[in-house]
Write a protein that binds this DNA or RNA. Sequence first.
DNA 1: GTCTATATATAGATAGAC
DNA 2: GTCTATCTATATATAGAC
Lengths: 184, 184
Amino acid sequence: MTTRDHIIQTADQLIRAKGYNAFSFVDIANVVGIRKPSIHHYFPRKTDLGVAVIEYHIQQLQKIQKAFAVKCAVEKLDRFFLIYDDIKKHNKVCLVGSLTTDYNTLDVEVQDKLRYFSEVMLNWVTDFLEEGRCKKEFHFSEAPRTKALLIITNMIAIVQLSRVTEDKDFNLMKETIKKELLTN
Amino acid sequence: MTTRDHIIQTADQLIRAKGYNAFSFVDIANVVGIRKPSIHHYFPRKTDLGVAVIEYHIQQLQKIQKAFAVKCAVEKLDRFFLIYDDIKKHNKVCLVGSLTTDYNTLDVEVQDKLRYFSEVMLNWVTDFLEEGRCKKEFHFSEAPRTKALLIITNMIAIVQLSRVTEDKDFNLMKETIKKELLTN
DNA sequence: GTCTATATATAGATAGAC
DNA sequence: GTCTATCTATATATAGAC
């Protein structure tokens, strides 16, 4: 892995563990094993790093979309849940949840990139829900985009909320959502 | 309003607009019209202020619970939604959503108070959902606490997510949730 | 590409006068 | 109860040597 990628992935972990305004270049330097000013060689401003972290997430999601394009809707749903399994396992929150709460403190470049990432995510879920209903894998009465919003908001917030309720509420949400999609 | 209350309410607005780690005592001083060190007279540490803000929310919620104790479940649901209407109207997020994303940076006193507030909120929603189903006002198949988690996570995250999708997604969530509770 | 040194701003917090 | 002055730590960022 290149130093640049190591910085991006470390920033990503810190943003989702502590929040955008609670991580610093020193935190990253300590993990990557370089000095604070060296990070500016790759990312002149914190904003540049923030944008790069979101771009990394967009790339990862597009890889998943591509790899699962031929799979059935239930498999796509399971892959969607797997994203949050990983988040919950490491006691993080998702990038959209972390950055939307700090939204009013972000530079417009980060805001715009975040908007685009959210759009890609929402479109993907909307599409596989519609496909799943079309093929009788899923059953739901709402518009596919509305159902996608319901499910995505469940997942965004349960990784946050289960930090203070109970960890097992995470699996409870997942199982309830899946069961209801498969029933009827 | 006392200076102390003014500080608490200003801190509350700032936490939900920008996040816990993005507001400072100077921000509050500028709004309240006093100097930064004067705030320490009321709240020695930022942690003390954080705790007070959550306590304020607990009090507000308990007032609502009391005032609506005699009302029907649908009215309680509408009052629950009204909390989020106010949040969305002012482009804020809810306290639980804001503080759970910053959870790992909070002192344990704030964490514990936040856990208690979340419990009060979850219990209230669980109770009026159960009551509503009992009286045939609501229809749902999940356990009441599970349904409460589904609805609360929808609301926590839609005020966050609709900052980057579309504002009208907020009303869309609300109406969809209510319609499904009333149907069947 | 990484370093040391530094600039500049701001954070949370305290001391002590009024 | 509020102020000025100050402390200490840390933030983002830059300059310039190696």
